[in-house]
Design a protein around this nucleic acid. Structure first.
Lengths: 144, 144
DNA sequence: CGAGCTTGTTAGCTAAGCTAAGGATCGTGA
DNA sequence: TCACGATCCTTAGCTTAGCTAACAAGCTCG
């Protein structure tokens, strides 16, 4: 229906606007160290999954394979991620976070979350609930 | 309290995760033409405000002034934004969207919103309401 | 075995973002 | 008045993120 479509359009605009600004604000909250947003995100996905191939990680992160090659390269340089050969398929590579990767991740994650968690702490429980639900919805949309 | 802080931490992580993926997904939905995410965002802010100085626009967009110089430069090259001299302060510059800027913006905005509005259309009214509220909260957090 | 697909990487590009530094202009206080 | 500090914008130079195109290696299946 006309009105509903208009509602969706308006919401789409509002939402995109809010998210791009939020995103940039979050990006500004740099951790003490040197892990970037994308690197941290990749490391997180890798840790949650245990092991992944580069392609799988690229899919999860919604990025093209060459982009993931670069990100993984940076993480590997710092000894946070290790490459292993696939036992049966010579084309594939298996990625895994190292112990140091896990430790460094936890540290940076905490620093990175600081301002956001602080801001969330100042919200009402209802607002927190709203954001939690919204996060689930956004995740679903991004996946679709 | 301990538990609340933990809740905020968890929510922070979930939210960041959802947003970064959503963001990348949105970025993939390229319009027909050539305006990028950041350019479109700047053009939007400028149009909504009417006129802004580069610094004001940088603040709104949560970006450093040199970054905004580049973005505005791209927009100006394409004749979408015009620079004017400030009537009394010789240091400042006044930015404004041109007619063509407004037209191109509307076009690209529509294309860009397509997948998102489509996805939003498939949500229940309650979910849409949740996202609308969440957008407001996120905007407030980003501003703080 | 050979053709074709899949995986990962390399090469090369653009855009986005930052800091540092500089030039022009404004405002103010001696 | 005028010199000095502050403000605004831009330039220069860098890193990261992201893309496509192309390619080498390996798998698969007729």
């Amino acid at each position: 229906m006309m009105t509903e479509r208009t509602t969706a359009d308006t919401l789409a605009k509002t939402l995109r606007d809010a998210i791009i600004r939020f995103s940039r604000r979050a990006r500004q909250a740099r951790p003490v160290g040197d892990l970037t947003f994308s690197q941290l995100s990749a490391l997180t996905s890798l840790q949650l999954a245990g092991t992944l191939t580069p392609r799988e990680l690229a899919d999860v992160e919604r990025v093209q394979p060459p982009t993931m090659t670069k990100i993984v390269g940076k993480l590997e340089e710092r000894g946070l991620v290790a490459r292993r050969r696939h036992p049966t398929d010579g084309r594939q590579v298996i990625l895994e976070a190292t112990d140091e990767g896990r430790a460094v991740y936890a540290l940076h994650e905490r620093a990175r979350n600081e301002w956001l968690a602080g801001a969330l702490d100042r919200l009402t429980p209802e607002e927190q609930e709203t954001l939690a639900t919204a996060a689930e919805i956004l995740h679903r949309i991004a996946r679709g």
